[in-house]
């Protein structure tokens, strides 16, 4: 990613996080919500991997606006030449259920893919869901008889691709959250004194931190490859995405457990900032398929009677698609 873009993004995410309206205005103004929309459609036209880096940064900054959802929704909308300026979007994160939609109280529209049609709906919040997201999720009903926009999706944009791109977005968020948890936990264990020295000096604590590091690093590696595989306006390499989401979802749970353990009881309080990351992780790891969902798909792919060979895939054309 270009330095200028990275610096701008860092500034926006770090400085504006307190005020959701200001943050959203800054994200709109910078063009980041339209990062994946081609310039010909008044978008930023960034490569996909850059958009995923923005998403990773937004997760570290605990962005409390539907930035990632809107980025992806705008990408899908652009495939049918549509644009709703300034709109905040949410997505269906579990098949087609409307029972637990993220940002149900603040997004303007829901974008879903229904039998090959991209639909954009206004909706009403029925019930806040007291759940794990940290951001307000809720049960919604669609407003009106018909969607605001209904357009036939291009052939490559199947419901599988909707799910895969969503999974990759969540993987990037999970990686950002894990990286930040590693930072927080390193800082906390270095500052906190017990038995006359900092916790970080104890081998038992170092073991915990190296476990967090191992889970985070392997998730980031899988992510960094997976974000290079989709080409704009093409179905992505689903195995790479499945590997990234399965790895990140499984890793994030372990990282949370270890981070709380390294902190002690403070890590389990709402007041301490760790809780915000934990809430999000507990939601994101399930969205668009948890680890077991993707592990089964991967395992089945390689054990079907006519399945391809692992060596071809893992050591074959790897890294040729970027």
């Amino acid at each position: 990613m270009e330095k200028l873009i990275e610096d701008t993004a860092a500034r926006i995410f770090m400085e504006q996080t307190e005020d959701a309206n200001k943050l959203w205005a800054a994200l709109e103004e910078s063009g980041f919500t339209r990062a994946w929309v081609p310039e010909s459609l008044d978008g930023f036209g960034l490569p996909l991997e850059d958009g995923f880096e923005l998403i990773r940064m937004s997760a570290k900054a605990l962005t409390a606006v539907p930035f990632a959802e809107t980025l992806l929704a705008n990408y899908f909308l652009a495939t049918v030449d549509q644009h709703l300026p300034g709109a905040k979007f949410t997505l269906c994160t579990t098949t087609d259920s409307l029972d637990n939609i993220p940002f149900a109280d603040s997004a303007d529209y829901l974008l879903r893919l229904e039998r090959g049609t991209i639909e954009v709906w206004r909706f009403n919040l029925v019930d806040q869901v007291n759940e794990l997201s940290g951001n307000s999720a809720g049960q919604i009903i669609l407003e009106g008889e018909s969607p605001v926009i209904a357009a036939a999706a291009p052939d490559w944009l199947s419901s599988n691709v909707y799910e895969q791109m969503g999974a990759l977005v969540r993987s990037a968020q999970l990686c950002g959250a894990m990286e930040h948890i590693l930072s927080i936990t390193l800082q906390y264990t270095s500052a906190r004194q017990q038995f006359g020295r900092s916790l970080a000096k104890f081998q038992a604590i170092q073991l915990i931190l190296t476990r967090i590091a191992a889970q985070t690093a392997s998730s980031c590696a899988a992510l960094q490859y997976a974000v290079m595989t989709p080409q704009l306006s093409q179905a992505p390499d689903w195995i790479a995405i499945a590997c990234a989401k399965a790895k990140a979802s499984a890793a994030a749970g372990l990282v949370v457990t270890d981070a709380i353990q390294a902190h002690g009881a403070i890590g389990y309080t709402q007041e301490y900032m760790l809780s915000n990351y934990i809430h999000r992780i507990w939601r994101w790891r399930e969205d668009f398929g948890g680890e077991t969902y993707w592990q089964i798909k991967i395992g089945q792919h390689y054990t079907q009677p006519d399945s391809g060979s692992l060596i071809e895939d893992i050591f074959g054309q790897t890294n040729t698609k970027c």
């Binding site: 690093a217 392997s218 998730s219 590696a221 899988a222 960094q224 490859y225 790479a240 499945a242 590997c243 399965a246 790895k247 499984a250 680890e291 077991t292 993707w294 592990q295 089964i296 798909k297 991967i298 395992g299 089945q300 390689y302 054990t303 692992l310 893992i314 050591f315 790897t318 890294n319």
Partner: peptide, 21 residues
């Protein structure tokens, strides 16, 4: 059983990418 193998493959994939990098 598929999930068990799938998990191994995701770790192998990550290791392989790290090693190459």
């Amino acid at each position: 059983g598929a999930a068990i193998l799938g998990e191994l493959i995701t770790t192998l994939n990550a290791l392989r990418l790290m090693s190459r990098s």
